[in-house]
Structure formats: C-alpha cells, structure tokens
Design a protein around this nucleic acid. Structure first.
Lengths: 188, 188
DNA sequence: CGCGATTACAGACCAACTGTCGGTATAGCA
DNA sequence: TGCTATACCGACAGTTGGTCTGTAATCGCG
C-alpha cells in the first residue's frame, strides 16, 4: 500500500486544486464537472471514483479551504496573551483573509446554499466559529447564557464586513468599524 | 389593453406563487422549471415568455417576498415614536418573520448565491437593510463614519440569529440575546 | 512466486434539465 | 378590416450530473 495510495492522493489533490480555482472563479452552479474533467485531463470514472459527486467535491474543497484559514488565523494570534487582544487580532486576520475572492465566494457565498445551512454551520464550528467562540469566552465580557448566540452574531457581523471589503470597500474603514463594533460589544 | 393584460398578470402571479413554494421547499438548485411547468399546467414557451429564465423567476420570487416582509415590518413598528424602541421592535419583528422557512431558504440562504452578492445587497438595500439603517441613524448612537458599516454588521448579526431560530433554537433566548446585543451596541 | 482482492482509471451511456425557436391564436387598435 | 402585439404552445438541441461495465496495475497473502 504505497505506490497506489500515493497516486490516488496525488490525483485527488490535483483535482482539488483545479476545482477550487473553478468554484472560486465561476461559482458552484456555473462550474461543470465536465470542465473539471477537461482541465485535469481525468476521466469521468476516475473523478467519480475519488469523489462521490459534485457536491462532495465542493465539500472537499471547502474543507481544505477552511483548514487553511484556521491555520493562518492561529498563526496570526500566536504569542498574544491578552484575550481581548487575541480576539481583535483574530477577527482582523479573518477579515483580511476573507478579502480573498476564493474565500469570499466559496466559504461565505456558495457554501451555505450548496451544503445547506446545517452542514455549513457544522463545518464552521470546527474552524473559524469554534475559535471565535473560545476567544470570546476568554474575554469574560459576555454572560454565559448569551455566549453561543453572541458568538454567532459576532461572526456573522465580521463576515459581513469582510464581504464589504471584498466588494471593494475601503479595508481601513472596515477594520476601524470592526474594532469599534467589538469595543461596544465587550463594554456593554 | 385590459383582458390580455389581466390574463398575463394572473398567469405571472400563479407561476410566482407556485415557484415560491417550490423554491422554499427544495431550494433553487433542486427545483426544476419542469416541475413548475407541471404544477402550473403552463407550457414551456409561456413561462419563458413571462420570465427570461430560471434566475429571473427566482429574482421575481425574491422581490415579492422582500416586499411582503417590508410591509409587515412597517406594520410592526407603526405608532412607535422612540427611535430605539422602533429599532428593537423592527428587529424582533424581522426575527420572527425569518423563522418562516420560506423566508429563511429564499431570502437568506439561496438569494446571495443565486443572484450574486451584489444584486442581493442591492435588493436588501431597497427593503430590510434600508429600513434598518434609517432606524439606526435615528437613534443617534452610532457615529456617522461607522453608520453604514455598523448597519450592515447589525443586519447580518440579526439575520444570523433568525437562522438559528429557524434551525430550531429557542426563540425566546434568541430574542433576549438580540436585545442584549442591541443594548451593548447602542451604549458603546 | 502466484493469485485473488483491491484500487485507479477509462469512456460509453442515460435521464434530466435549461433554454431556443418557429408557429398559432386572439385581443387591441388604427 | 387588416396590422401589431401579446399570450401561449410544443418540438428540439445542447449540456449536465451521474451510472455502469470494463481494464490494467498494484497489493497482500499463502
């Protein structure tokens, strides 16, 4: 179990990279399996051997993207001790990442519609949302009964400002607005 | 120009109602024009005469839904003078409305992905977002430079809590959380 | 080594779907 | 009374996602 497994993994990675680019450029609906096949030089049978279908392929793309985001955010807050400072640094890092059209389109726009809100949330829970909730709890500023809901709302708010930046808004203003937003929430 | 125009309008309305139900039940992707045709008894040519395509049909459904939401929110805040009270009543009304699976699926989940974020935003601007921004401004609690961004973030946060309720969360807790969220934001 | 099992991959094929197009009928209007 | 615009029809084409049978090569085991 070596040569075969490696070849399989390599193929999956290649397809994943190509699919990521296509999904980000054209969106889920306007990306056809046919195109993925052409660009990867793979056959239909091969692709369906590795991925159960278009939706599963998208889910794999999303998972890989989320994982990468998570790693970059962890990196951004490394070495910061103060919880509030961690929260701020993390959210700002996330906003900057979400400026990337790939992330915008795949994670924020298509994912909820394609996978359904439930599965999308479940994945976010394992990545960005989970981190944000922990950081928010660490600040101690939010009563326990509201923690989960406020974490959800805060993440949605931050995502929204990320989308605004991606649309072409000024990212300095957006970052200032997010900091102000955070300040108000934590002071309450 | 009377009998003909009436017939046309009636047909459009009938299709719109059927499409709304189907889009809400199955989502955009899993709703086929074919099904709309069958359920409405209309022919392909007729449908494409009234609506340019599937996306245009969805846009029409969305527009009608947004209009209805707007009217209901206006109704909910009628007679309230205090700006902060207006804002609270409006957001709570919106949360309750968004509990409706039709609204959840069409307006919050599929619309951004189907129409693209830009066109979705443009439509929200004319309805819920426009109203929320005005209400927020009236409270005078948010500095002008952050007004637009904070209105966006607040709406996103409120939408998120509406989605959580729709998933099956306790709506009392959610409403309390939203009120607390608002209080913190406005006090800042 | 040898042989069955598993895995990677190929490509023909199918059912379903969206959108087009030429055509018909009828209401409104000059 | 004819001309135009509108409502509606249904066959058709092109594309799409997914299935299925088949092939080759590698792996694991006796």
């Amino acid at each position: 179990m070596n040569l075969k497994a490696e070849r399989g993994a390599a193929t999956r990675d290649r397809v994943l990279a190509i699919a990521t680019r296509l999904f980000a450029d054209r969106g889920y609906d306007d990306t056809s399996i046919e195109t993925v096949l052409q660009e990867s030089g793979l056959s239909r049978g091969a692709l369906y051997h590795h991925y159960a279908g278009k939706e599963a392929l998208f889910a794999a793309v999303l998972e890989a993207t989320e994982r990468s985001i998570g790693a970059q955010i962890v990196e951004a807050v490394r070495g910061i001790d103060d919880p509030i400072e961690t929260l701020r640094a993390g959210t700002l890092a996330w906003i900057r990442l979400a400026g990337d059209p790939v992330i915008k389109r795949i994670v924020l726009l298509d994912a909820p519609a394609v996978l359904g809100w439930e599965r999308w949330r479940a994945m976010e829970e394992r990545y960005s949302f989970g981190m944000l909730k922990a950081a928010l709890q660490a600040t101690g500023a939010i009563p326990a009964q509201f923690l989960d809901l406020h974490a959800h709302m805060l993440l949605a708010a931050v995502n929204e400002s990320a989308l605004l930046v991606a649309r072409g808004g000024d990212h300095r203003t957006a970052e200032a607005a997010v900091e102000e937003f955070l300040r108000r929430l934590l002071n309450g």
